[in-house]
């Protein structure tokens, strides 16, 4: 395990996860399709998970990996609920473009 970190270098994991996170952020900001936004959110989530795992190894502490399992489980549940909402929105509005979802207007 140490080798992996030595070979590739801790900073590269961080770079990768930052890049992944940013991809997620820009995806959320630029795309109007709710499903794609959803996927972007998942990417952000996984970027954080990657960081967790990397640091868990770095610190020789399993807690981070335990946390990631939790996080993945919660994310799965969230996806289930979120997709269900999207399906019902699609049934109502015949679209999942978020620009059409303005009922929350104050």
């Amino acid at each position: 395990m140490d080798n992996i970190l030595q070979e590739i270098g801790m900073e590269n994991y961080i770079y990768l996860s930052v890049i992944l996170f940013c991809i997620g952020v820009f995806g959320v900001l630029y795309r109007r399709n709710a499903i794609i936004m959803f996927m972007s959110i998942e990417i952000m989530l996984n970027a954080v998970n990657l960081l967790f795992v990397a640091f868990s190894t770095y610190h020789q502490d399993a807690q981070g990996q335990v946390f990631v399992f939790f996080s993945m489980a919660v994310a799965a549940a969230e996806v289930a609920v979120g997709l269900a909402i999207l399906v019902s929105i699609f049934r109502n509005l015949n679209s999942i473009d978020i620009d059409n979802l303005k009922n929350l207007k104050g």
Partner: peptide, 18 residues
């Protein structure tokens, strides 16, 4: 003025959030 910020556009909300 504040009202117009709450225009229901999720994109804008997210943008502001980020």
């Amino acid at each position: 003025q504040g009202k117009s910020v709450q225009n229901g556009s999720i994109g804008l909300y997210l943008f502001a959030f980020v």
